[in-house]
Amino acid sequence: MKRREFLKKGLSAGLFTGAFLNMGGLDKIVAGNTSSANANKPIDLVAVKGGAPAAMFDKAIAAMGGMQKFVKKGQKVVIKPNIGWDVPPENGGNTNPELVKRIVEQCFAAGAASVMVFDNTCDAWNRCYENSGIEKSAKQAGAKVIPGNTENYYKEVDIPNGKRLTKAKVHEAILGADVFINVPVLKHHSSAKVTISLKNLMGAVWDRRFWHRNDLHQCIADFATYCKPTLNVVDAYRVMTRNGPRGVSLADVVEMQSLILSTDMVAADAAAAKIFGVEPTDIPHIKMAHELGVGNMNLGELNIERIKM
């Protein structure tokens, strides 16, 4: 049984690697048309628009140098999408399931030993996992979709550089992973104004109440000083422009067909905020994270690859 599974995994990994190499080749040609990045400097951020979620990710990761740059053979990967709400994908309340699926596939193609997916949800967790479509799609790609519904899964860590948040209980999967991929969905947020990469990490910890109680924006920024994802993939395919973070109706959702990829959470959030239509400087937690040195919100200083599909 185990051997069969091993063979299956090995085989599919091989197939994906093959497919991926092909895509990489194609991308170089296409990327040449729209690229505005300085080819001599490493790319800080990739922005893609006009494609399906999975296709946009393929372009973005290829432009970034391929998944194998971030996921090495035999590594343990944990993916943290936004699965906060018991709503279907078209409501834009959760990360796009197709995007999550493709990221999982790419991880395995790069040789990941295991890929885990979880979120500390707001609505009943198993209903969120199901209704979001993420459980199904991630499992199809071979990921383990793991729970984060009780405190038992979280372990306390110190946050030495935090101003208000000095301790937090973090999901054990993140603590035990080699690679952490943060996959937020870009949304309006009633209290944080927008929710992107930085805010998405609230689902990686247990006690959110503390954050709300003790200066939400500062706590978001504080946690980012401790937890820096390997990659941040911002899903801006369907964007909830108001009534966030849960949304009231489909009329709250605008199809923007965009995606941001960056190793820098602050940069990713600055770019996504612009797509959303707000200035990064107007979002307190982005500004605070920038000031704490988590990343750079000044997009003008970054080497950005822009891809239109």
């Binding site: 707001c122 947020h189 944080a192 200066d215 939400l216 009534n243």
Partner: peptide
């Protein structure tokens, strides 16, 4: 005098 909004965040009808 700090933001919170946990209530509104969870409200399904706004």
């Amino acid at each position: 005098k700090t933001d919170c909004g946990a209530c509104s965040e969870h409200c399904p009808t706004k």
